[in-house]
Computed example of a mutant assay.
Amino acid sequence: QLKALLAGLALELAQAIVRDGEGATKFITIRVENAASRAEARQVAYAVAHSPLVKTAFFASDPNLGRLLAAIGYSGLENFDTDKVRLWLDDVLVTENGGRAAGYTEEQGQAVMNRAEITVRIDLQRGRERATVYTCDLSHEYVSINADYRS
Rank of each mutant, 00 (worst) to 15 (best):
A60G: 13
T29D: 01
E78R: 13
L53M: 14
I30P: 06
L53W: 03
R42S: 09
V18L: 03
A41F: 00
A36Q: 13
L53T: 00
L77P: 01
N97Q: 12
V32Y: 00
T25H: 02
A60F: 02
D91K: 14
D90K: 11
I17R: 12
A71W: 04
L53Q: 07
T56H: 07
G23Y: 04
R19F: 00
A71E: 06
L87W: 00
E22M: 10
G99V: 04
R31T: 09
N79Y: 05
D62K: 14
P63M: 10
I72H: 08
G66N: 14
A47K: 07
R42L: 14
G99W: 02
T82H: 13
F27C: 05
A57C: 09
V48D: 02
V18N: 06
I28S: 04
V48Y: 01
R31A: 13
G99Q: 11
V48C: 08
I72S: 05
T25S: 09
F59L: 13
R38W: 03
G99F: 08
E78I: 06
V94E: 00
A57R: 11
W88C: 05
R67S: 12
K84E: 03
K84F: 04
P52S: 13
A39N: 13
L77T: 06
F80P: 11
S37V: 06
Q43P: 05
P52Q: 12
R42P: 00
P63R: 11
S75W: 03
A70H: 12
L69C: 14
A101R: 03
G98E: 04
G73L: 07
A71R: 12
L68Q: 11
A35G: 12
E40S: 13
T25P: 03
S75P: 01
D91P: 11
R67H: 14
A39L: 08
A45W: 01
V92F: 00
A70R: 07
G76S: 10
T56N: 10
E22G: 07
A60P: 02
A41E: 03
R67G: 12
F27P: 07
I28K: 10
S51F: 06
E33R: 15
I17D: 14
Q15L: 10
E33Y: 02
F27M: 15
A45M: 05
R100H: 04
L69I: 15
R38Q: 15
S51D: 14
S75F: 00
N97H: 10
R19M: 09
R38G: 10
A45C: 11
V48H: 06
L69T: 15
L68S: 10
R38I: 10
T56L: 05
R38K: 14
R86H: 09
L65Y: 09
E33C: 08
R19D: 06
F58T: 08
L65R: 15
A101V: 03
N97I: 04
G21M: 09
A70P: 00
S51G: 06
A36V: 13
G73Q: 09
A49D: 04
I30E: 01
V85E: 01
L93S: 09
E96S: 15
A45N: 00
